[in-house]
């Protein structure tokens, strides 16, 4: 259904030129057992990954199998709350529905103990000071607001440790 035009509401009725036609899809999502463990970990303020029994790689979040070996990953591994920025992007472009003030940093964070990075928001640092190898820590929402969702992680911020050596994360770029 079309939205009310502000000018029409004001009584200044010009010709109708546009029609709001929202497209909506309601769907039910089941993340599966492995990702559910990851999400339940977030609810406890923990990053939970899984280790491949063959190659030993730790995936977070785990999809329940090793993409290299094709075998189920059954061993849960708790990752550290700290990690290393491997790559990043500074967002300068405003877009509809944007909830974070620009410029902001979107980074790939390699948690200590994991063999794959995942995307996180970096805050508490000017956007032009982000760098590869920066050590960061996760900042969580208040304990009573933790949910099985990535929304439980507010953002990552520099934790003050010296930058990680490039050699330590070059395999994860």
């Amino acid at each position: 259904m079309a939205d009310r035009d502000d000018t029409a509401a004001a009584g200044d009725l010009g010709p109708v030129t546009t029609l709001a036609t929202p497209i909506r899809l309601d769907f039910e999502f089941t993340p599966g057992v492995a990702q559910s463990r990851f999400l339940r970990g977030l609810e406890r303020g923990r990053f939970i990954g899984q280790r491949c029994p063959k190659c030993g790689m730790v995936y977070v979040p785990s999809r329940g199998s090793c993409p290299t070996d094709g075998v189920p990953t059954t061993e849960d591994v708790e990752l550290a709350n700290v990690g290393t920025v491997t790559t990043y992007c500074v967002v300068n472009v405003p877009f509809a529905g944007q909830s974070i003030e620009i410029p902001y940093i979107c980074a790939q964070v390699l948690l200590d103990g994991a063999n794959i990075s995942f995307m996180g928001l970096i805050q508490e640092i000017p956007a032009d000071q982000i760098r590869m190898g920066m050590r960061v820590e996760a900042v969580w929402v208040d304990p009573d607001r933790l949910t099985p969702s990535l929304a439980s992680v507010r953002y990552f911020r520099p934790n003050g440790e010296p930058d990680a050596d490039y050699e330590s994360f070059k395999e994860y770029l």
Partner: peptide
């Protein structure tokens, strides 16, 4: 053990008529 959630994907298109 698997979680389940309802999601909504929505785009607020405006058409020129």
């Amino acid at each position: 053990e698997a979680l389940h959630a309802s999601h909504r994907l929505e785009y607020p298109y405006a058409r020129s008529v």
